[in-house]
């Protein structure tokens, strides 16, 4: 059957065997949440279905598109493929917690360049870019591309995404706007 061949085999096989509910206390956007869920439930679905934070999006479920990107401490992770049982006491930051009122420099740049079209992938794009700038405030164009290649945009806003990140990073951009 087609379905059995999907995705990351190690992760997927593990999920089939573990149908145990467990209680977790996780820290999201500076707030503690107690959840009682399947222990292999990806963080994405804990955020969306259990805690009700809908800004993190589901795109592929296999860490292939980046729509579900959030921060685990300071690192960008694909929450669709990160089981709740692995979160521990790490700080989780989602788009809702990135800034007070959408005023993170990247969000401001996204507004300036009017980056989004449909907008669905953009929260994941911003979270991935924010993690990049945390570890490297001035990435080169090539470094931006290398990091952002994990985030798909079907509308094709790549040029403006790159321009917006470059503007914040203070590096040159080759985008058309």
């Amino acid at each position: 059957m087609v379905f059995a061949e999907c995705g990351n085999p190690t992760f997927y096989c593990a999920t089939f065997k573990r149908n145990i509910m467990a209680k977790y206390s996780i820290q999201v956007n500076g707030k503690k949440h107690e959840v009682d869920v399947l222990e292999d439930m990806p963080l994405l679905w804990v955020l969306r279905d259990v805690i009700g934070l809908k800004g993190t999006k589901f795109g592929c479920g296999k860490a292939l598109c980046g729509a579900c990107t959030v921060h685990l401490n300071d690192d960008a992770i694909r929450s669709c493929s990160y089981p709740i049982s692995s979160v521990g006491d790490a700080r989780i930051t989602t788009i809702e917690g990135l800034s007070e009122d959408g005023d993170h420099p990247l969000q401001q740049a996204w507004e300036k360049f009017v980056v989004p079209q449909c907008g669905y992938c953009q929260t994941g794009q911003i979270m991935n870019a924010a993690a990049l700038l945390k570890r490297n405030a001035h990435p080169s164009g090539q470094e931006i591309e290398q990091t952002m290649q994990g985030n798909l945009c079907r509308c094709g806003t790549y040029n403006r995404i790159k321009a917006a990140i470059s503007a914040v990073a203070g590096t040159s951009s080759s985008a058309s706007k």
């Binding site: 934070l53 809908k54 800004g55 999006k57 809702e96 507004e111 009017v114 980056v115 989004p116 907008g119």
Partner: peptide, 17 residues
């Protein structure tokens, strides 16, 4: 600029999902 811009970049935009 598109009217939904701020909602999109702050994760407040509501899609079907």
């Amino acid at each position: 600029p598109i009217v939904d811009l701020h909602d999109i970049i702050t994760g407040k935009a509501v899609f079907g999902i």
